[in-house]
């Protein structure tokens, strides 16, 4: 905002006025990085489940951000990612979802059980990683895209930062679904999750029960890590948290 900049300039010469100095510096930072300026400010978020929402500093999974999902077990990680896409679809009606993979093999009938509608799902085939990152950035920047799911890509810090800035422009969420790694490295994403499977307690020999997931929040910008055991209740369409006593098992895997 150039007009404001010219207004704050004349007040700066007095070096003893700490408040004015700080305000000026904050304004400059805000101009450099809009994402950092809105840090701590309330931002729109996707509801996940009461427990997760209370734990996350944004009261839910923040929109206009990049999130990483590490896949310790392909089914559970894919299920959690599909759930996030479905929630983004519900929160941003009219926007489409991009599914970017070297060989996109989404299956609409299965995705519909998690509430993800295939009508607004667009599959993008990117044999080269450079194409995948380019497509993800273009998609995130577009105001008609609600969520972008990228498979298997591990962008470096610069590329991830670009994606994060693109998401702040477009207002959707970016999901990086990548294989689990012992040392996943630093990230520019707002959150990082690790998903593994958990046998359902009510499963019998001829009955699978509801899908159970071990949800570990490894990293959240401005928040604490955590671990939960959740269950996807397909009938009511909600993510239900089981007894938190079991969370310790999930924490152990995080080391």
């Amino acid at each position: 905002m150039p007009p404001q900049a010219t207004l704050t300039q004349p007040t700066e010469p007095d070096p003893t006025d700490r408040a004015a100095l700080l305000a000026g510096l904050r304004a400059r930072i805000a101009r450099l990085d809009p994402g950092l300026a809105s840090f701590g400010a309330p931002r729109a978020a996707l509801p996940l489940s009461p427990e997760l929402d209370a734990h996350l500093p944004w009261n839910g999974l923040p929109l206009a951000g990049l999130h990483e999902v590490l896949s310790a077990e392909p089914g559970a990680a894919m299920g959690f990612s599909a759930l996030l896409l479905a929630r983004a679809q519900a929160a941003l009606p009219g926007r489409s979802v991009l599914w970017i993979a070297p060989e996109p093999d989404a299956y609409p009938a299965g995705l519909a059980r998690l509430g993800l509608s295939a009508a607004s799902l667009i599959l993008v085939r990117t044999p080269r990683p450079a194409d995948a990152l380019w497509a993800a950035e273009e998609g995130l920047r577009c105001p008609a895209i609600g969520a972008v799911l990228t498979f298997g890509e591990t962008p470096d810090l610069t590329a991830a930062r670009r994606l994060q800035l693109a998401a702040e422009t477009g207002g959707g969420i970016g999901l990086l679904l990548r294989p689990d790694d012992e040392s996943p490295g630093p990230t520019a994403a707002l959150t990082r999750w690790r998903l593994s499977a958990r046998p359902s307690p009510e499963a019998g020999p001829h009955h699978l029960g509801e899908p159970g997931w071990e949800i570990a929040l490894l990293r959240a910008r401005g928040g604490r890590p955590g671990a939960w055991v959740g269950e996807w209740d397909a009938a009511r369409g909600e993510l239900r948290m089981l007894a938190p006593a079991q969370a310790g098992a999930a924490k152990r895997r995080r080391a």
């Binding site: 989404a106 009938a109 299965g110 995705l111 519909a112 509608s117 009508a119």
Partner: peptide, 22 residues
């Protein structure tokens, strides 16, 4: 499922006990 043009709207699929990726 079959591939359709990205520029045309498509109808929705009915949920079924199927995997998320085939």
């Amino acid at each position: 499922v079959r591939r359709a043009s990205a520029f045309e709207p498509v109808v929705e699929a009915a949920p079924a006990p199927r995997p998320l990726r085939l």
